[in-house]
Design a protein around this nucleic acid. Structure first.
Length: 766
DNA sequence: GTGGTTACTTAGTACTCCATTA
DNA sequence: TAATGGAGTACTAAGTAACCAC
């Protein structure tokens, strides 16, 4: 399988280049299917071995057994069926690997196996050092996760004073708030005071305060509960639904579900078999028995009038008058004000998602087996409220009650409910700008920085483990190598048939890699091709070390394409091992670490001191892009991409013409001044010169913009910026080069990273 | 070791709003 | 003044990983 190398960015190491996926997703379908069949077989086998004496041995299983026997011609039909149970096979295999491995290792030694090249270029100083700033400001100490039983540390007296003062202020603030909440209605007049207060709130520097002991997330929590989806509004009489060419009036319930489908009619989803099948099955559940007996074929349903009605409605919404739009906006603001905030430990904090997800049709990503199923309406009776005992419990809507009210301060969520598609729990939590999220974020980067201190040791260790006699250890070491080198996700096991068939490192299957002893002039190439999170394709050709290559060959021996590559490994085994190497270390820390260290290196490499601000920002974006490529953060190219690119090019051409004109004018002005030699003409020359300069700058800006946009066509920068890059690296870079931080982070991002903006100075080192 | 549950982070896309341009 | 386009936001799916009982 070959994919076209898409990201042709000279700045980025070829190793890290992942290929485009969106166009190729379909290619995987076939394979997925095959895999599913296979897995089903496997599952059955598992069941069988579990209840070996059970009465479940039906004919299909027998058939399957026979099938399996023919599959594995070497007679080892039970091989690879089960990861953890088949000890005999394991032994046999290990013996085999031992003998062949020994030979191989010897051979390598004879070949003069030299220490492998470094996985990633890293700054020469291997040791970690805290930034001088942190040394001088113990208050902003990087938090170590290892201080398990955290006791608020005594910090500089000065700072204690500060914090005490702040606390006093807060207490006063809180008192005021409490009295306020008692007599609720506050005259609209005190806007100024309110504003001031708001600003104070925004300026709250939680990162300078003491933390709670491990496990405790808050001491006081009060909120207004969730906002429910608006009730269903039946369609007007003139909007008809037709079945088999005849008008049919649907019951409200059936009609509501029908409108969900009608609203999606233009989407490709509604043409997919699984989607239609799932939808129809769930829709029928909502029908009256009469409807059920009439409506038996989705193909005979005509939703077109409904669809047109909704299109007209959305058109009308766009055409609304200013006043109407303003009214809606005000209503939304009112809702936000009332339900969008909570009080957590004396501070008003913004809630991220205070609105309950409305009912609709489930749209999974990729080839999701449950697409089209009905996401049912969430009622107060489904809702668990979490708040503190001494808070005012939010009242349920009239005539309803909550499923439960609990007071659990070991968790951060305010509201939860169980969703009906996967049976998973959904939560209402706080905004990223909140203390509770910020602290966690900060902690995450501190863990990644701790990894920096010991990453060399860990790398040496897994290199050693490639030679281990134990298959499990070898697999673990190779997997870890991939996670480290390629920033792959851990790859938890997933329930079969419940989700799209996607994989991560530990769940890679034989069919996801191709080994090439030589490819494109390089030795020991591994070609990856699989669907990762969100069914985004990961395609990459990577040269690996010989020992890794040989190990992979070994892991793949006698396996079917649908078999697990790392059959002795899962994420929990891997993470347990990582925990032993460093406290708090998990597979995902490697992604954070490698993303952040890459940004820091790339910024160092790409920033040229004498460049102007737009050029520096281009460099920043390129560094950011290198990370996004490493992490395989892709996006569908914007629908208007080609057009907007063309428009930009037109602008550039026009600017070029304008520049040529200005230069001509400058030339003639110069000639004129030479002849006249008066003040006026000199001034004209000066002003023409300035004009040329101005236009040159404008042109340059446009060109930079064009480059940036082109390079960004299929790469999403946001995800890494928000989740993987230690914001202090960016802040330090801004401070070092005099770039306003607003150029890198928008308002929301600045709120999220307020802690970093406040604490990092220009010589911060990750 | 496994399977189930829970809590939380990470992810891409659809929509909205607002500034700029024709 | 309407159209356009891009930045920012809202939404919610899909991951990771810890914990617990057996």
């Amino acid at each position: 399988m070959s994919g076209d190398q898409l990201h042709n960015d000279s700045q980025i190491e070829a190793d890290f280049r992942a290929n485009d996926s969106h166009k190729h997703k379909d290619k995987h379908k076939d394979r997925e299917h095959r895999h599913k069949e296979h897995k089903k077989d496997k599952e059955k086998d598992r069941e069988k071995s579990k209840h070996s004496n059970s009465e479940h041995k039906d004919s299909s299983e027998k058939k399957h057994k026979e099938k399996e026997k023919t599959k594995h011609k070497d007679g080892s039909s039970e091989k690879h069926k089960d990861k953890h149970k088949d000890r005999d096979k394991e032994k046999r295999k290990e013996e085999k690997s031992k003998s062949s491995g020994d030979v191989k290792i010897k051979k390598e030694k004879e070949n003069g196996f030299s220490s492998p090249p470094r996985i990633k270029d890293e700054p020469d100083d291997d040791g970690y050092y805290a930034s001088p700033k942190e040394d001088s400001k113990p208050l902003k100490r990087p938090r170590e996760e290892d201080d398990d039983e955290y006791k608020p540390k005594k910090i500089k007296t000065e700072d204690i004073k500060k914090s005490k003062k702040r606390k006093q202020e807060e207490e006063e603030d809180n008192k005021a708030k409490k009295t306020k909440s008692k007599d609720k209605k506050v005259p609209e007049g005190d806007n100024k005071k309110k504003k001031q207060k708001k600003e104070e709130e925004q300026k709250w520097k939680w990162w300078e305060e003491e933390r709670y002991p491990e496990g405790i997330k808050w001491k006081f929590l009060e909120h207004k509960g969730p906002v429910f989806a608006p009730p269903y509004e039946p369609l007007p009489e003139n909007v008809k639904f037709y079945y088999d060419g005849k008008v049919m009036k649907l019951s409200p319930k059936a009609e509501e579900v029908a409108t969900f489908f009608a609203k999606m009619l233009d989407h490709e989803y509604t043409t997919k078999d699984i989607f239609r099948k799932n939808f129809f099955k769930d829709w029928r559940k909502e029908m009256t028995s009469e409807e059920k007996s009439t409506i038996t074929n989705l193909n005979k349903c005509d939703f077109s009038q409904m669809s047109q009605y909704f299109k007209a409605q959305s058109e009308a919404r766009k055409q609304m008058s200013k006043e109407e739009k303003q009214k809606i906006k005000e209503e939304n603001e009112r809702l936000l004000k009332e339900y969008g905030f909570c009080i957590m430990d004396n501070h008003k904090e913004r809630i991220a998602n205070f609105k309950i997800e409305p009912p609709g049709l489930f749209r999974g990503r990729g080839n999701h087996p449950k697409m089209g199923m009905l996401k049912r309406r969430i009622m107060p009776e489904d809702i668990i409220i979490n708040c503190s005992k001494d808070s005012k419990v939010p009242p349920p809507p009239p005539g309803h009650k909550w499923k439960e009210v609990r007071h659990d301060n070991k968790v951060t969520w305010l509201v939860s409910w169980t969703e009906n598609i996967q049976g998973s729990i959904k939560y209402i939590m706080l905004n990223p700008s909140s203390r509770i999220k910020g602290e966690k974020d900060w902690q995450k980067y501190e863990t990644a920085r701790r990894l920096k201190k010991c990453v060399d040791k860990i790398r040496n260790q897994y290199r050693e483990d490639w030679k281990s006699k134990e298959m499990k250890v070898r697999q673990r070491a190779v997997a870890l190598y991939f996670i480290d080198k390629l920033a792959l996700r851990a790859g938890n096991e997933k329930e079969e048939g419940e989700t799209a068939d996607t994989v991560g490192c530990c769940s890679l299957r034989v069919e996801h890699i191709n080994l090439h002893p030589e490819l494109d002039g390089q030795e020991y190439m591994v070609e990856f091709d699989f669907l990762g999170k969100d069914s985004i394709r990961y395609y990459n050709k990577v040269p690996v070390e010989k020992r890794v290559f040989k190990n992979l060959q070994l892991f793949m021996e006698n396996k079917q394409p649908e078999d697990d590559l790392f059959d002795r490994l899962n994420t929990s085994i891997l993470n347990k091992h990582l925990q032993d190497l460093m406290e708090g270390l998990t597979a995902k820390v490697f992604r954070t670490y490698n993303a952040s260290i890459t940004l820091q290196q790339q910024l160092k490499e790409l920033t040229t001191p004498d460049e102007n601000i737009p050029a520096k920002i281009l460099s920043y974006n390129r560094a950011n892009r290198a990370v996004a490529i490493l992490c395989n953060h892709q996006r569908a190219p914007p629908k208007t991409f080609e057009k907007s690119m063309m428009n930009l090019q037109t602008k550039i051409d026009a600017k070029k013409d304008q520049l040529a004109d200005a230069r001509r004018e400058l030339k003639s002005a110069k000639a004129d001044a030479k002849v006249r030699r008066d003040e006026k003409s000199k001034k004209t020359v000066e002003s023409k010169k300035k004009a040329v300069q101005r236009i040159e700058e404008q042109l340059m800006k446009l060109e930079v913009q064009a480059t940036d946009r082109e390079e960004n066509k299929q790469i999403a920068l946001g995800t890494s910026k928000l989740n993987y890059l230690d914001p202090r690296i960016s802040v330090a870079w801004c401070k070092k080069w005099g770039i306003p931080v607003e150029k890198i982070y928008n308002k929301t991002q600045r709120e999220k990273f307020a802690w970093a903006i406040d604490m990092a100075d220009e010589d911060y080192e990750f």
